[in-house]
């Protein structure tokens, strides 16, 4: 596990949500506060599960144990936050 910077996590999350939503846009165009289920992104609960698995594999992190214990996934930033916590845990 390498030390991941916030920019790498953010870009990877955005790339994954763009792919999950079957869009062909530059991931950098996706705002941090973009809803995962809104006008732009279309992430279902099944899709969210697949994304979490892909993010663990792509970034080599272990997502936190409380991943589904009160964690809300409304926006891209929510995903970035949980992956960032996973990255810190993996480094520790």
């Amino acid at each position: 596990m390498t030390d991941l910077d916030a920019a790498t996590v953010g870009l990877t999350v955005k790339r994954v949500v763009v792919r999950e939503s079957r869009l062909s846009i530059d991931p950098m165009q996706v705002a941090d506060d973009e809803p995962l289920r809104g006008e732009l992104l279309h992430v279902t609960s099944v899709g969210l599960l697949g994304m979490l698995v892909r993010l663990e594999d792509e970034l080599g992190v272990t997502l936190p144990d409380d991943l589904f214990a009160g964690q809300s996934f409304h926006t891209v930033a929510d995903l970035v936050e949980v992956v960032t916590r996973g990255a810190r845990r993996s480094v520790a």
Partner: peptide, 29 residues
């Protein structure tokens, strides 16, 4: 959260990364 956590745990198990702690945290909540 329960089916989400269990399906994540099932997927993790298949990838050789068992996550009983995710299951426990979810049921505790």
């Amino acid at each position: 959260d329960v089916p989400m956590a269990l399906n994540f745990a099932a997927s993790s198990q298949l990838r050789g990364r068992p996550r009983p702690s995710v299951v426990k945290a979810t049921f505790e909540r």
